[in-house]
Design a protein around this nucleic acid. Sequence first.
RNA 1: CGGGACGUGGCGCAGCUUGGUAGCGCGCAGCGUUCGGGACGCUGAGGUCGCGGGUUCGAAUCCCGCCGUCCCGACCA
Length: 566
Amino acid sequence: MRASQLFAPTLREDPAEADIASHRLLLRAGFIRQLMAGVYTTLPLGLRTIRRIEAIVREEMDAAGAQELRMPIVLPAEPWRATGRWELYGELLFRLRDRHGRDLLLGPTEEEVVTPLVASASCSYRDLPVNLYQIEWKYRDEYRPRFGLLRGREFLMKDAYSFDRDQAGLERSYAAMYEAYRRVFERCRLDHVIVEADPGQIGGGINHEFMARAEVGEDLFVECEHGDYLADTEAARPMPPEPAGEPTEPLQVLDTPDTPTIESLARFLGVEAARTLKCVLFDVGGRTVAVLVPGDREVSQTKLDKLMFPEIVRPFDEEDFDRRGFVKGYVGPQGFEDDVVVVADHTVRGGRDWITGANEPDRHVRGANVGRDFRVDRWEDVVAFREGDRCPIDGGSLRVGRSIVVGHIYQLGTKYSEPLGATFVDEDGTPRPFVMGCYGIGISRIVAAAAEQYHDELGLRWPRALAPFDVVVIAATAGDATHEAERIYEELRSRGIDAVLDDRDERAGVKFADADLIGYPVQVVVGARGLAEQQVDLKLRATGQRTRERLDEAAQAAADLLEAAP
RNA sequence: CGGGACGUGGCGCAGCUUGGUAGCGCGCAGCGUUCGGGACGCUGAGGUCGCGGGUUCGAAUCCCGCCGUCCCGACCA
């Protein structure tokens, strides 16, 4: 490609709407242009990078036994009603209506399409497993699109779906995808971690997130300083504290006017929040569940959801407090009726003589102790992770890392096959629902994640595998240099290397600046200065390292440098 | 959806407080000089000042409404 023909409008200044590096540089370097919030045009350079990522993904998916297909983006509402997601997804769905008044949506993911599709093939258990994937644009009307390609309303995703006869089969399919994903992100050179993520309300299903480290990432994970523990922040289980000793105080009631929050209570009494016992009430499938955590900690509803699955967990609202006779802001676990389930986090074992609610307005108690003053029905891990918690394996200090989720794989089981009536015929002749897995890779998000990890003050610095082109040949001066540059460019192309010839009628400085901004891995500079000695200059963008090579070996040298590039 | 900021040639911005018919830099076009790290000079094109309403002799500027974009947030006793 000749730069004079390439539509790559680079910007000299940072666009006003972009804050983070990837967004700013992808705009400036001419990879993308914004059309509206969360929707971008992909320019030729951006599309080349996307194609390279797609190629890697395709190779690994195919090698893992998945088959590519293409499903529609405009979808009928009916199957989404069947699975409940027409309601559940709410505003997240782009909905539209056709001329006949039929409800349609733009696909945010495609279980509702692929599941009936496979079912319609009248499968026998002998046809399984099947794994189908596509690379297609997805649509989600995010409540707040942001950060350019990181959270768009339109994004390119590889989505794969496996269909197995049973859980054992699913686990095999899942393991194959897990390995394929590892290879994909290795080949993309993304610095990433893999964590077992929280299954949330779906419950039970194992799932893993592939997270590219990035300071600007919205997704948090927890890691031990010694590298032996990794977890989703919602799933992290800190090491429990040493158990506290026997009670030392009698239970006594305190007048604590106007102290409905832990903060106001701690201030009123002049004690640490950690001395108080927080008692949070939830409705779980109609029953009252009281969750106890130290006052300076929070309950993780995600953990509670998982614990109570398949029951639905809902925090108490005003009405619940009134109707069930609890005093909001002054709830304590003493004297609960038997129908209240008391769940305490392990961290509660680390305290005694608690200050907690007295179950009457403006009053608390002190000296409340487990066993003597209140009962605990279940000891569980329900506390939200907090900076400073210890590693459950070696007690090391845990820290929070930020990341961009670029891949997510999931064991779905029969969550979709059952409501959609998607079955195969098993060996005994009876229909059974497929045991499914789903596997996503955010292709357009990889572009942004890689830009976050590979850039400097000059611009983008693509790893070889993701760069829009491998090499740029810069004609730095007119005359002979132009001819030599052209010759080197042709030689590179004949070697199968994706090269750009910067033949624009621009000053050398402009070409250098654009080359650095766009981030070609290798630059070959052909100019009068070098030609006087029959030499050219090579630059490796990743390190900035420059070398001189003989003119007649320029293409070979560039190829070698590219080979050695990260 | 709540809070905040911002919408002025393609891009980045000034002008608005105190109303008087729009300006700077970059980019773009032409000519000349220059030519290995975002050159210089001269000339030129390009703007419904986000949209609608109002106030006024007169609105980019003041008032009201709407739209758009960006940032922060979304829930716990």
